[in-house]
């Protein structure tokens, strides 16, 4: 071990053997996958196990039980509410991870005229964004509310809303708090902190709806007992819309936070830079 660098034990075999093994591994993986897939049911087989267990019940009872014509929405927000809560929590955790990155690196806005925080200053872009952004945001809300009867729902609407927020950031410059230089058009919409508040409000609303169902005598996320009036299917429909709205807020806020993490300039704290060029690209 005297000559080997510390922490890296020498790999077995000569480089040539290793390269051959590496080159053979992936064709072997492909062949193995295809051989395994020959045992699967035929593509489009209506009698396959995936289509005969559980899903007939979703297809036949979803509309009557939850009032949602779009079965995907019914399964997403009602039957598998726990699962969706977990997914929303993962997305929220990604946003929190971004906060850790921002805090560890010492976030600060770019100086005027540098980085992405400088508005492009193009009249064409400004005018196009003024027209497009309201349409995008409104369409996102439409996708959320109309998700019961057409493709759409909280996830898609949230991503669209987040895209609208990103579009404003791209063209009109920074939306983070305490901006030192005023862009040509004042930045509109939630900044980094506002986006975080959106994401937190979303996840809290999700858990809150679940706990409210418990408070009125049901199980966690079993909305049938909520005192919203009307027949059970209608109550479930309203609660499902609430769940979708919570997912919408979480996704929209997190998407904006993700973009900010990539685009906000950093002052490196901690260890000094290794020798090399000093650009801050």
């Amino acid at each position: 071990m005297g000559t080997a660098p510390p922490g890296r034990p020498p790999a077995p075999g000569t480089p040539r053997v290793r390269r051959l093994l590496g080159a053979a591994a992936f064709p072997a993986l492909f062949v193995g996958l295809v051989v395994g897939m020959t045992q699967l049911p035929e593509f489009g087989d209506p009698a396959s196990p995936a289509s005969t267990h559980l899903s007939p019940r979703f297809i036949e009872d979803a509309a009557a039980e939850t009032g949602a014509a779009n079965m995907v929405t019914a399964v997403l927000a009602d039957y598998r509410g726990y699962d969706t809560l977990g997914e929303a929590a993962v997305i929220f955790a990604a946003g929190l991870g971004c906060l850790v990155i921002l805090a560890a690196a010492g976030a600060r806005p770019d100086p005027p005229g540098a980085g992405m925080s400088h508005p492009f200053g193009s009249v064409v872009l400004d005018a196009a964004t003024r027209i497009l952004v309201p349409v995008v945001l409104l369409f996102a809300v439409y996708v959320l509310i109309h998700g019961h009867v057409s493709p759409g729902g909280g996830f898609q609407g949230g991503v669209l809303f987040g895209s609208g927020l990103i579009m404003m950031r791209l063209v009109w410059g920074p939306a983070h708090e305490g901006r030192a230089h005023q862009p040509a058009v004042p930045a509109f919409g939630p900044g980094l902190r506002g986006s975080l508040v959106l994401a937190c409000a979303g996840i809290l609303a999700y858990v809150g709806i679940g706990l409210a169902a418990m408070a009125f005598g049901g199980e966690f996320l079993n909305y049938g007992t909520l005192p919203l009036g009307g027949d059970p299917a209608h109550v479930r429909e309203l609660a499902t819309l609430g769940i979708e709205a919570a997912v919408f807020l979480t996704v929209a806020g997190t998407v904006a936070v993700l973009f900010d993490t990539i685009s906000i300039g950093m002052r490196e704290s901690g260890a000094p830079l290794p020798p090399g060029d000093g650009d801050s690209a």
Partner: peptide
């Protein structure tokens, strides 16, 4: 269709 919508947005 729902997956297609999501994939197109994302």
């Amino acid at each position: 269709v729902d997956v297609a919508f999501t994939e197109a947005c994302v």
